[in-house]
Amino acid sequence: MAWNEPGNKDKDPWNNNKGGKNQGPPDLDDLLKDLGNKFGGIFGGKPSGGGSGKSFSSLGISLVLIIAVLVYAFSGFYTIKEAEKGLVLRFGQYAGVVEPGLRWKWTFIDRIIPVDMQTTRDLPSAGFMLTQDENVVRVEMQIQYRVVDPRAYIFSVTNADDSLSQSLDSALRYVIGHSKMDDVLTSGREIVRQAVWTELENIIKPYNLGLIIVDVNFKDARPPEEVKDSFDDAIAAQEDEIRYLREAEAYARGIEPRARGRVKRIEQEAIAYKEQTVLDAEGEVARFEKMLPEYQAAPEVTRKRLYLATMEKVYSNTSKVMVDVDGGNNMIYLPLDKIMQQQPNYQNVIPQTSPSTSNTGQPTRAASSSSRADRFDNGRD
Score class of each variant (00 low, 15 high):
V196Q: 00
A234D: 01
I112N: 04
R222H: 10
K18C: 07
I339K: 06
Q276C: 08
Q142H: 07
V64G: 09
T158E: 13
N329G: 08
E239T: 09
N208F: 09
P299I: 01
L31W: 03
Q362M: 07
G328A: 05
T357V: 12
V71D: 06
K338L: 05
I332Y: 08
V278G: 12
Q166W: 12
L308K: 08
M181Q: 01
M311T: 06
G96L: 04
Y273R: 15
A366E: 00
Q142S: 04
S167T: 05
A367W: 04
G101M: 05
R103C: 03
N8D: 06
D326Q: 15
Q296W: 04
L200Y: 01
S165Y: 09
G76A: 06
W104Q: 06
L70C: 14
N330G: 10
Q362N: 07
E284S: 05
R365G: 03
L35E: 11
L59I: 12
T107R: 03
R111M: 01
K11Q: 14
Q144L: 08
P224F: 03
R243A: 13
S354C: 12
L164V: 02
F288H: 07
R303E: 09
F56E: 08
Y295R: 00
P26W: 01
I191R: 11
S163K: 11
M1P: 07
N359R: 13
P100E: 03
I42E: 04
R258V: 14
N37W: 00
E282G: 04
S62F: 13
K21R: 12
R365K: 11
R121N: 05
Y333A: 15
A248Y: 05
N378L: 13
P100G: 03
Q342K: 13
F128E: 15
T353S: 09
K205W: 02
R380Q: 13
S187L: 10
E267Q: 09
R151K: 15
Y207A: 10
D27L: 12
G76N: 01
D133L: 02
A126C: 07
F74M: 12
N345K: 14
A373D: 02
D337E: 11
P224V: 08
K18D: 08
K33W: 00
K11H: 14
L130A: 10
S319R: 03
D183W: 00
Y94K: 02
G7H: 06
L209N: 01
L292I: 04
F288M: 11
E5I: 04
R246W: 06
E5R: 06
A152D: 11
L336V: 13
Q238Y: 05
N217H: 13
